[in-house]
């Protein structure tokens, strides 16, 4: 039993709803202290997995361990160590933001005195101090999400599970959520598991990724590992007027005077530019283009489909 080195260990988990297989023989580990991005299209099975990690849904097969605890056997114990935010878990609309936090804090067994300071601190962090006495029913989507995040981390969980924390938010609110998550991880040495289909926001904060499609994992790793594993190459984006025809460049022409050339060694770039100039051409722009998370994601997903 060395599961404790992992914040999350999922082993061969399958979940069926009647005929539909939502999660299919899925295995995954998340290390302590990392921000893990769990990425996949709608209906891939992300939320189903989150509910199983909380012990709210029971898998048909497989084992899940959260900080060494089996969430199906001891959900109430596991929940002490984890804070979960999902799209469908609401707070009480007839209560104010502060009252809500106070209630959930008490449900987590926190002392009144501790709770008071903690709520103050959280409201300030999520930028809701001025709206703390407003009813949650009158909150905007962004405010509700921020309050929900405050709720999820009120008890200083070691593991934070966030299911679509930025969905439906404008860029500013999404950024706010992301910086809050980062800050929490930095100050509490926590692990974060983020489910999302918004790749840009994921790339901003995640250390490692897992791609899921149709209930199974396609690939896991850090961005550079993913790039390497799938032999994606870096590209040089070149805007140049050639002095004479160049066989190599013509091969990678994507537009008039625009070329995108894959390379592995930076020396190749220097050689290339030199050859263009020596041949009497002009280089207007040379830019390094690394594959983004988006490039990797879509290429892997397309590969799946074919």
């Amino acid at each position: 039993m060395n599961d404790k080195t992992f914040a999350i260990k999922i082993d061969g988990v399958t979940k069926r709803f009647d005929q539909k297989v939502a999660v299919n023989n899925l295995s995954l580990t998340v290390n302590s202290g990392e921000i893990f991005g769990f990425l996949g299209p709608n209906g891939a099975g992300k939320t189903t997995l989150v509910k199983m990690m909380n012990g709210i849904l029971t898998p048909n097969e497989g084992i899940i361990s959260i900080e060494g605890i089996n969430p199906f056997e001891k959900p109430a114990v596991a929940h002490r160590y984890m804070g979960t935010l999902t799209e469908t878990a609401n707070m009480y609309e007839y209560m104010t933001g502060e009252e809500n936090l106070y209630f959930y804090g008490s449900v987590f067994g926190m002392d009144k005195a501790v709770l008071k300071d903690r709520i103050e601190e959280l409201l300030e962090a999520v930028d809701l101090l001025d709206d703390k006495d407003k009813k949650v029913g009158d909150y905007s989507t962004g405010m509700k999400k921020r309050l929900a995040l405050a709720r999820a981390i009120i008890h200083y969980p070691k593991l934070v599970i966030l299911d679509e924390p930025t969905s439906g938010l404008d860029p500013e609110n999404a950024r706010k959520i992301n910086s809050l998550i980062k800050e929490y991880v930095a100050t509490n040495n926590a692990t974060v598991f983020i489910c999302t289909h918004q790749l840009r926001y994921a790339q901003d904060i995640c250390d490692r990724y897992g791609f899921i499609n149709k209930g199974h994992i396609i690939c896991t790793g850090t961005l550079s590992e993913l790039i390497e594993k799938n032999s994606f190459s870096n590209n040089i984006h070149l805007k140049a007027k050639l002095g004479c025809p160049n066989k190599l460049l013509d091969q990678f022409k994507i537009q008039e005077e625009i070329y995108q050339i894959p390379f592995t060694d930076e020396e190749e770039i220097a050689e290339l530019i030199k050859s263009v100039v020596v041949d009497g051409g002009k280089v207007y722009e040379a830019r390094l283009k690394r594959p983004t998370l988006e490039d990797v994601y879509f290429s892997l997903l397309n590969e799946e489909a074919s």
């Binding site: 909380n54 109430a76 929940h79 804070g83 999902t86 469908t88 878990a89 609401n90 959930y104 449900v107």
Partner: peptide
């Protein structure tokens, strides 16, 4: 119906409680 029960489920309290 208002989906606040789900939020309670994520807290350290047994369904029985």
């Amino acid at each position: 119906e208002k989906h606040t029960l789900e939020t309670l489920y994520y807290s350290p309290i047994k369904v029985r409680d």
